[in-house]
């Protein structure tokens, strides 16, 4: 069903770029950009975790808002609609951001929020595992620091 699936296609595209294209990219700038693209393709392998992550993210924000006595954000969309899930998650995170003074004034809510922030770092499905990473592919190297 749906073969090659998304995971297989991403892995295949990465292999083609690394094995077929990269060895023939000699100019420094495009070679550097290509190394960055390959590193990012690695991070997309967890794409299928996104719907569950969005649901988890929204629920955790709402639970903190509830502890702080702030207004929570309801969801009336289709649970299989990715855009609706993303919009709900954005609304919930925005509500948490807006409620920051209230949350900080409530010790239990603050503790819950810090716990949420820390857990979210581990669960986040679309990020590299390090901030300053180096991608080395077929002789091209790119240091992808934040600046």
């Amino acid at each position: 069903m749906m073969r090659p699936n998304v995971t297989e296609q991403l892995a295949g595209i990465r292999r083609i770029l690394a094995d077929v294209v990269a060895p023939h990219v000699a100019d420094p700038y495009p070679a550097d950009v290509l190394a960055g693209v390959l590193a990012v393709l690695d991070t997309l392998s967890r794409w299928d975790e996104i719907p569950d992550f969005l649901r988890w993210d929204s629920e955790r924000c709402n639970s903190i808002l509830a502890i702080a006595g702030a207004q929570t954000v309801g969801f009336a969309g289709d649970p299989l609609d990715l855009d609706a899930l993303a919009e709900h998650q954005r609304d919930a995170r925005r509500a948490l951001e807006a409620a920051m003074p209230v949350v900080l004034a409530d010790a239990a809510a603050r503790t819950a929020m810090v716990g949420y922030f820390r857990e979210r770092c581990g669960r986040f499905p679309l990020a590299s595992t390090s901030v300053g990473r180096t991608a080395r592919v077929e002789g091209i190297t790119s240091a992808h620091t934040a600046r």
């Binding site: 950009v33 960055g36 991070t43 979210r120 770092c121 990020a127 590299s128 901030v131 992808h144 934040a146």
Partner: peptide, 30 residues
């Protein structure tokens, strides 16, 4: 650094940057 990464994300989404900048969640942990 986090805001610089977010700036890169913005520019990438607008097709103004040739590099992908993902969420700086690892910086948030630090």
């Amino acid at each position: 650094l986090s805001i610089i990464v977010l700036s890169g994300t913005h520019a990438f989404v607008d097709h103004r940057l040739d590099r992908v900048h993902q969420s700086p969640v690892m910086l948030y942990r630090i």
